[in-house]
């Protein structure tokens, strides 16, 4: 903790960055994201076991975009998000300083992209044992049952788009779902419209999702969206040996083709 503060303070004091993205104390026992621009503000900076949110999300927001350079308190999920964003040309290495923190809360100091890649590989995947059990249950289902499972799982969705709002990879200026001429996906929440929305989101994230689980955490109706993303990531890792959030230069599996690609899905 003290080490994080020390690094953050130095960065601001020596004018190495204009902005630091981290956490501060919120109401009650909660934490909230915070943006620090002066060294003295750093006293407010905290990092504890509640600071699990993927604040890489803010990198595409105006406050970060307008900064010439910035630093971010980055747990492995944030680090992976940054690497993935970098691979998609959304953030340049020279603009960002990463203050790395392991899942156990140990500060690993400032990371350049190369070090971030190494760090990312050593950290465990953010999948919980109970999630694993659910995945196994779903995978054991016959196709039709699996489809029905998801239709039912999506049915409580109220289309609040909190999943989208909390996802660092959902950075499109204008989301497809808001395009109304023509309007492919209906706005009103109903069973199949919900399915369309979540399928589209899953496909857009396939091979890009870094499995931080933010979508699930933010969902007010507890749809296991992280499971869906994780299953896709796992499948893509198996089939294409490709994994998001591990490299700053990376092309997701669905955006490349090679002559050795399997075509066993063509029936």
């Amino acid at each position: 903790m003290e080490e994080i503060k020390k690094i953050a303070k130095e960065l601001l004091a020596e004018n190495k960055v204009q902005l630091i993205v981290g956490f501060e104390k919120g109401s009650a026992n909660k934490v909230r994201p915070a943006f620090f621009t002066k060294p003295e503000e750093i006293d407010q900076l905290i990092y504890n076991e509640y600071c699990i949110h993927n604040i890489a999300l803010y990198l595409k927001k105006d406050i970060c975009q307008k900064a010439n350079n910035l630093a971010i308190i980055a747990n492995p999920n944030v680090v992976r998000s940054i690497l993935q964003l970098a691979s998609e040309n959304q953030i340049a290495e020279e603009k960002i300083k990463i203050i790395g923190i392991s899942f156990e809360g140990k500060c690993v100091g400032l990371l350049d992209f190369k070090a971030a890649e190494e760090f990312s590989k050593t950290q465990p995947k953010g999948i919980k044992p109970e999630d694993k059990a659910l995945i196994e249950k779903i995978q054991a289902m016959p196709l039709e049952e699996r489809f029905n499972y998801w239709v039912e799982a999506f049915s409580p969705c109220i289309k609040c788009y909190a999943c989208r709002a909390s996802c660092p990879m959902c950075y499109c200026g204008k989301c497809n779902v808001e395009t109304n001429n023509p309007q492919w996906i209906p706005v009103a929440p109903h069973k199949y419209g919900n399915l369309e929305w979540h399928m589209m989101r899953a496909m857009h994230l396939a091979g890009r999702c870094i499995n931080c689980g933010e979508c699930n955490r933010s969902c007010p109706v507890n749809i296991p969206l992280n499971i869906l993303s994780y299953m896709l990531s796992d499948f893509i890792l198996d089939e294409f040996d490709s994994e998001a959030g591990m490299n700053a230069v990376f092309t997701p599996a669905l955006s490349v083709y090679t002559s050795v690609d399997k075509e066993n899905f063509i029936k």
């Binding site: 998609e88 040309n89 959304q90 499109c172 200026g173 092309t251 490349v256």
Partner: peptide
């Protein structure tokens, strides 16, 4: 200030 809805991710490029 949008200029385009293109986000410049260039995932279209390798494809």
């Amino acid at each position: 200030p949008e200029y385009s809805s293109c986000t410049g991710c260039f995932l279209c490029q390798p494809v």
